[in-house]
Design a protein around this nucleic acid. Sequence first.
DNA 1: GCGCTCATACAGACTAGTTGGTATGTTGAA
DNA 2: TTCAACATACCAACTAGTCTGTATGAGCGC
Lengths: 220, 220
Amino acid sequence: MSAKTKSDGLNDTKRALLEAGIKLMRVRGYSATTVDDICAEAKVTKGGFFHYFKSKEDIAREAAAYFTAEKSKEIMGAAFRKLPDPLARIYGRLEFVQDYFRSAKQINRGCLVGAFAQETAITYPHLKEACRLAFTEWTKDFEVDLAEAKALYAPKADFEPVKIARLYLSIFQGSLIMAKTEDDTDALIENITEFRRYLISLMGEGTVRDQKQMKTAGKA
Amino acid sequence: MSAKTKSDGLNDTKRALLEAGIKLMRVRGYSATTVDDICAEAKVTKGGFFHYFKSKEDIAREAAAYFTAEKSKEIMGAAFRKLPDPLARIYGRLEFVQDYFRSAKQINRGCLVGAFAQETAITYPHLKEACRLAFTEWTKDFEVDLAEAKALYAPKADFEPVKIARLYLSIFQGSLIMAKTEDDTDALIENITEFRRYLISLMGEGTVRDQKQMKTAGKA
DNA sequence: GCGCTCATACAGACTAGTTGGTATGTTGAA
DNA sequence: TTCAACATACCAACTAGTCTGTATGAGCGC
């Protein structure tokens, strides 16, 4: 039956096609990426492509889901995740992302979901839905930590975790766009710093001093 | 020579092409918009199109500039512009944008510059440059007010106007993306509210009470 | 173990329609 | 008469998707 499936149930060829599609579409976008391009990149012929995907839109939908899962896994596996304190996780997350973009100063690809949202949200309802799901998942993931931290450190603070999580995701997506036009990630890193400052002002200055120690402890 | 040129030196046909191009590309993006589509929308033939633009990329570049100028004009002509107080102009600007998206709750098009930045920044250097210029112009426009307000009300405050301006533009662009996937502008409006709260925390709470009066005065 | 069947997993040529761009007009005003 | 301002027919290259063919291996009766 299936040749060589892996843990996630994906065949090698299909995975190669998905990863090629993601790689190309993150750079060129949906419309400018052709099926032939994807086939060439994945070293698969047209026959192979249409054996696994019934259309170009189909691979885009699966690519969005694959990309989202991949990024979620990256976040789930990061060191800050293991911190017991929710506020430490929050600041740890921000540093994690900043470090990520500090090491890759030049940006030569963007977020696949962001690209699809821009390009296809209005014209391809199915892709829009895939983007919405991804954004919801990422928002929720951050919101949980925010809610927990608020309950623990600033129960009376005047902010809604879900709104702050959405603000963060918007800043991130918007910064990625601007990073593309500026060829560097400085503004992205700066914007996260500003966001952190806002968070501190919401949570209360008092929570910061404690975090400094927890952070260094968590890094070990 | 030229048939019926207007104040900005643009012929009616060329303007129609530019506006058609903008209208379509804001919805479908660059690659998915064809020259024929633009011609049909503008009721101009291919010959007319290539009389005014030497390529598709060419109209995109001019469209970006046209769009940027158009938006700058909208901002320049808004009521908040005439406010003498810089801080009042800042909050007035935020309200202006929020009102704009409150009246158009459903979003069926995005920012042309944001779309180009996403889709073409890496593959079309000329378009990237056009986007960079637009972002720089918009950032500068806001930065001026921020610097003036800071000098006047919070000279010792710890923030750099240019960074806050860039943060705002990122939030705006990112929120537009998310608005597309959610079919409404709620998050966009909310994010601006959060940004305003951050600004207040930077400028100092003391500056808010005064603004309430100035704002209502400015609206009259 | 051996041939047979059959489904999966591709390979690659082909096609109908599209796309950006061109070549060759025509028209009307100066 | 000339030139800008279009109009129209046309083209080569490309594009998503199809069709037919084939290799491979699993399952099965014997």
